[in-house]
């Protein structure tokens, strides 16, 4: 019998509403707004209240998919990343780095988004980067 409320921040936009994810025996059972937080003050929008919806959703991808002969098939991370590296290097070589653009996600951490920004500018050499939370 394990009941936990884990303090976290809503991942859907940049406001930073604070919330607790409630779990019973490790399974998510709900979300509580964090009433002690100065930013959100115990209030959430519909996205915050439903922020855990994708965790166990049947549509959620568990492995990378690669299109082979017109069909998406599950592959290993090694194969997916090798393919991405090969294609991006090829595009950069043939058409220049500004032929590549990157879209990052609010569902990543701040640090992951920082890494993506570094990857765009320092590794690929382009400023073409944007983020889905810039609604």
């Amino acid at each position: 019998m394990e009941y936990q409320n884990t303090l976290t921040t809503c991942i859907y936009c940049g406001c930073g509403c604070s919330m607790y994810v409630e779990t019973i025996d490790g399974r998510i059972t709900g979300v509580w707004p964090d009433k002690t937080n100065q930013i959100s003050g115990g209030r959430l929008c519909i996205k915050g209240w439903n922020v855990t919806g994708f965790v166990g959703h049947p549509d959620r991808l568990k492995n990378p998919l690669l299109r082979k002969e017109g069909k998406l098939v599950e592959v290993t991370w090694d194969e997916a990343l090798s393919q991405v590296a090969e294609k991006l290097s090829g595009i950069k070589r043939e058409s220049g780095a500004d032929s590549i653009g990157l879209m990052t996600s609010a569902k990543c951490t701040n640090e992951e988004n920082y890494l993506m920004n570094k990857f765009a500018r320092a590794v690929l050499g382009t400023n073409n980067i944007d983020h889905c939370a810039r609604l």
Binding site: M1, Y20, W32
Partner: peptide, 12 residues
């Protein structure tokens, strides 16, 4: 109270 916030808890 933990990690600077207050939330429901099951004390055992």
């Amino acid at each position: 109270r933990r990690n600077g916030g207050v939330a429901p808890h099951l004390f055992q």
